Simulated assay, not measured.
Amino acid sequence: MKELELKYGCNPNQKPAKVYMESGELPFTVLNGKPGYINLLDAMNSWQLVRELKAATGLPAAASFKHVSPAGAAVAVPLSNVLEKVYFVEGALLSPIATAYIRARGADRMSSYGDFVALSDECDAQTASFLKREVSDGIIAPSYSAEALEILKTKRKGSYLVIQMDPDYQPAPIETKQVFGVTFSQQRNDVKIGEECLMDIATQAKDFPAAAKRDLLIALITLKYTQSNSVCYTYDGQAIGIGAGQQSRVHCTRLAGGKADRWFLRQSPQVLNLPFKDDVRRPDRDNAIDVYIGDEWEDLLETDDWKRVFTEKPPVFTAEEKKAWLKKAAHDVCLGSDAFFPFGDNIERAHKSGVQYVAQTGGSIRDDNVIETADKYGMTMAMTHIRLFHH
């Protein structure tokens, strides 16, 4: 197929809409559902991300996309018992691709609500079963087992979007797009991200353990397909906080750092022991946990709204308790940036979320201040000399 009509463009009033190839066939096949414009933008970006993660790490990879930026990205690193509980998969013997998907979805479950999923490897029945119970718009993968496809075809009353990508497809080196009737053309961003990007270490500390190298590559490849400005915190084989599309880099760092903090706080005893009612759905649990961790909880306690989800009133998770848990749990975190850090304030904020390893472009006139700040906290920081803006 060379051309595919879409439901509409970015918004329902933007009709007609289609995707097409200047030459050759479309590199994907729609196996179920009807794609929209944003669906396919998410599909094409997320597929590139998981393909590159698999190539860089050798591990099956998954991504959860919303509005053309990842909410989560991960590779198949086994889950701890605590993460199994946090991700609602206690006791399950997970396949590698299911592990990657569970991690990607669990990075930021609030943002992943209604996501588009990408898998680097064949979607198996287990992954499809987990996906079926989540609120999601579609999936792209290189192949599907027969059982997985049947499961996915039952999702969303049979309308769930399932796309099969040709894993051998290679796009033309020059890409174009139109904005306000003006055509833009550029070399496709085919820069390869590997461990060689981490060779120029500017700080006094020089050590990058193998896990840190893996997680920094995850951060950088994730940023390559995140709307800029962007910053990504990674830990244990997955993104734990992504700050996308901010005009100020320190705001990216704060936004992503806040998400990383919430990821760690979700693993605290206070959250793990919340007395949920048995019939409370996962999205409602996610919302309740987000409120409980945040600053709104004490206000909620003044009403009876907590009774909708809890069997009894949970105690307040105090600021002191949160700080103590983060000090205990958040350590050896990795941080990537899609461009240079202009000031040391980014490093100061990163330190609060347990960052120990950093990869950033370098080249700021204040590099000395950024390096000095990293040295103050004993961080290891590499200058990649690669900018990863994505628009």
Rank of each mutant, 00 (worst) to 15 (best):
R214N: 05
A211M: 06
I221S: 00
K213R: 15
A212Y: 02
L220W: 02
Q187L: 12
F184M: 08
D190M: 10
K206M: 05
I218H: 06
Q204I: 14
D166W: 13
N189Y: 06
A205I: 03
F180Q: 07
M199Q: 14
D215R: 02
I221M: 05
R214I: 09
R214A: 05
G194P: 05
T222H: 02
K177V: 07
T203P: 01
I218R: 03
L216F: 02
R188V: 14
V182Y: 12
T176I: 07
I174N: 08
K213T: 12
V182L: 11
D215P: 10
A219Y: 05
K192L: 11
Q187P: 04
A211K: 08
I221Q: 02
T222D: 03
P173Y: 04
C197S: 13
L198R: 01
D168T: 15
D207Q: 10
A202H: 05
T203F: 03
A172C: 07
L216I: 04
T176Q: 14
E196P: 01
I174K: 15
E175R: 14
K177W: 15
G181S: 10
L220Y: 03
G194D: 15
Q170E: 15
C197G: 06
F184D: 00
A205W: 01
P167Y: 08
Q186I: 03
N189P: 02
P173L: 06
R214V: 10
R188C: 08
A210Y: 00
K177T: 10
T203V: 06
E175P: 00
G194K: 04
Q170W: 07
A219V: 08
P173E: 13
I221P: 07
A205D: 07
G194A: 11
Q170L: 15
F184T: 05
Q178P: 03
T203I: 04
R214T: 14
A210L: 11
D200K: 10
D168F: 13
L216H: 00
I218S: 02
V191K: 11
P209K: 06
P171F: 14
V182M: 12
I193S: 00
G194I: 02
M199Y: 04
Q186N: 04
L220A: 03
A211S: 12
I193H: 00
L220C: 01
D168G: 15
D190F: 07
S185V: 09
A219P: 13
G181Y: 09
S185R: 14
T183I: 13
